[in-house]
Design a protein around this nucleic acid. Structure first.
Length: 226
DNA sequence: GCGACAG
DNA sequence: ATCTTGTCGC
């Protein structure tokens, strides 16, 4: 599988992914959890465009330890359009995760899964491309809706598109906005929530994502934005 | 028509 | 995503 380069091609790939039924994955007691992140120049505003400078980083964690990391400098392959995020950063994400050693058992990324116009957000697609269980974590849903959970760590509340639950709010920390957890490739809601909950390290954001963001920003360094 | 819209 | 400012808590 490779990355589509046009909206029509991506939509076709998403429609295919929406009906895929890969073997479900259940997290074992001890797993390596990966996180991947892409950052852009400071000062970049709006949806951006193809060719925007970009830095991607990935980390793999063994419990509290960073077992491996990778980073690359590259360019966005398209502007950002809701529902078509893969066109912008799909290739960068795949590239930087493939350079990660050791390889993770499951991958976290900032993207939706089934909370998507075609039920196949980037969290699903990247997992499929890499043949790796994946979980999406976002600040807000793309199209799903649902009331927030109680202000108690671990509390969840459904996010639905019509009558179908496609993701879940998860209160990772009291007094802070809940995150949206998206089942991705080979993961269901219980597995996705377990993976995220087990990687929090007392923070609002899963540690693999925080560390990947740190590494990406470090790679960006002091490069000036527009 | 208008607003909303993963990053 | 990124920026800015302000506020609160350790």
């Amino acid at each position: 599988m490779h990355w589509p380069t046009t909206p029509a091609e991506l939509e076709a790939a998403q429609n295919e992914l929406a009906t895929a039924s890969p073997p479900p994955w259940t997290p074992p007691h001890h797993i390596l959890i990966g996180g991947v992140w892409v950052c852009f120049p400071r000062g970049l505003t709006g949806p951006g465009e193809a060719g925007d400078p970009a830095w991607a980083a990935a980390v793999v964690m063994d419990g509290p330890r960073v077992a491996g990391r990778s980073a690359i400098a590259g360019a966005a392959s398209a502007s950002y359009v809701p529902g078509l995020l893969a066109l912008r950063i799909g290739p960068l994400l795949e590239d930087v995760v493939r350079r990660l050693t050791p390889g993770p058992d499951v991958l976290l990324l900032d993207a939706t899964g089934r909370d998507h116009p075609r039920r196949a957000g980037l969290a699903v697609q990247l997992g499929a491309v890499l043949d790796l269980p994946s979980v999406g974590v976002t600040h807000r849903p793309l199209i799903a809706a649902g009331e927030w959970p109680a202000d108690v760590p671990g509390a969840i509340a459904p996010l639905a598109d019509g009558d179908e639950q496609v993701a879940t709010w998860l209160r990772t920390r009291a007094g802070t906005r809940p995150l949206v957890v998206h089942p991705g490739w080979r993961t269901g809601l219980p597995a996705a929530v377990r993976v995220v909950s087990s990687s929090l390290a007392g923070r609002r954001t899963p540690e693999p994502l925080r560390r990947a963001r740190q590494v990406a920003r470090l790679a960006r360094g002091s490069v000036r934005g527009p």
